[in-house]
Design a protein around this nucleic acid. Structure first.
Lengths: 154, 154
DNA sequence: TAGAACCTTCAAGTGCACTTGAGGCAAGTG
DNA sequence: CACTTGCCTCAAGTGCACTTGAAGGTTCTA
């Protein structure tokens, strides 16, 4: 019985951390992707994907009999999550540390929770700062718009 | 009559762009600051402030009779705005371009408005993405919390 | 009047996150 | 069977935003 995608099953219950909730639209009902397929799908370059693996951010990807990488849906989930973390501004080194915790299994749940709570806090702070910025931008945009509509008022 | 701060007056109506709305808490009722005062106030290093001026991101700062920089409240406003732009992820080169538009005066209002509207759009998009990320983080945090509270459920 | 604590310019260095290039193997096509 | 395409590894290069350092002038405090 092969995994056919559709709903996020995550059959091996060993470590459900990787399933990122409502999955992104998968290419199709398969489970083995070449590096260029993954590159197109994630927006990352093939070189970057290899580099991720090299530094330990992308844990060991399966290989074909000729040594080429074959990514599966779990890998895609992990990359989607990494993309989210990247969005938060988390340094790559920290993501690698998190990846190591995931690799070490259930024993690190607590530590992982702590890290994500810290990250959550930072993200919330960042959102607030950006909303502040939005207000400043709006004020300036309004100023410019007003100045253009009433240009002769010296 | 010297500018005493309080409400954003911006007496010379030439270019009100710099007044960033509700001003940050000013050091005190003065209007001439040394570079180290500005450094402490903004969190930027003195070297960075000189570099900003050098690349055209900090338009000409006044000098004392001995040639030392004397920043005023307008400069502080500008730096606060630059800080906001930096938060949005705008590259320094783009900020320099904006600074040049400001320097060229009213004729560039339209162009400036366009840039800020574009930036506004990007910031809004970014906020949405971060809120998405927040949801993912919450899901994972809950997963970890749940797994710790009910650890014996193989 | 001495020394600390500032300031100046010019230039090279740092850290991060990739990016690019070289050289080569393996599978499919006319 | 040559050729193109796609993958591999290893190593060096790039771009950005500062950061640090060197060498020297000026101003404030004791």
């Amino acid at each position: 019985m092969t995994v056919i995608d559709s709903t996020p099953v995550t059959s091996p219950p060993v470590d459900a951390c990787v399933s990122a909730g409502a999955a992104h639209p998968r290419p199709d009902g398969q489970d083995r992707y070449t590096i260029s397929e993954v590159a197109e799908f994630t927006g990352l370059r093939a070189h970057t994907l290899r580099w991720y693996e090299q530094i330990g951010l992308m844990p060991h990807v399966e290989r074909s009999h000729t040594g080429q990488r074959r990514f599966d849906n779990r890998d895609l989930d992990w990359l989607a999550f990494v993309g989210k973390l990247r969005l938060t501004g988390m340094p790559v080194a920290d993501m690698v540390r998190f990846a190591e915790l995931v690799h070490r299994g259930e024993a690190t749940y607590g530590e992982r929770q702590d890290i994500l709570e810290q990250t959550r806090h930072e993200v919330a702070t960042r959102i607030a700062a950006l909303q502040d910025t939005l207000a400043v931008l709006d004020a300036k945009i309004n100023f410019y718009a007003g100045a253009r509509q009433a240009p002769e008022r010296a």
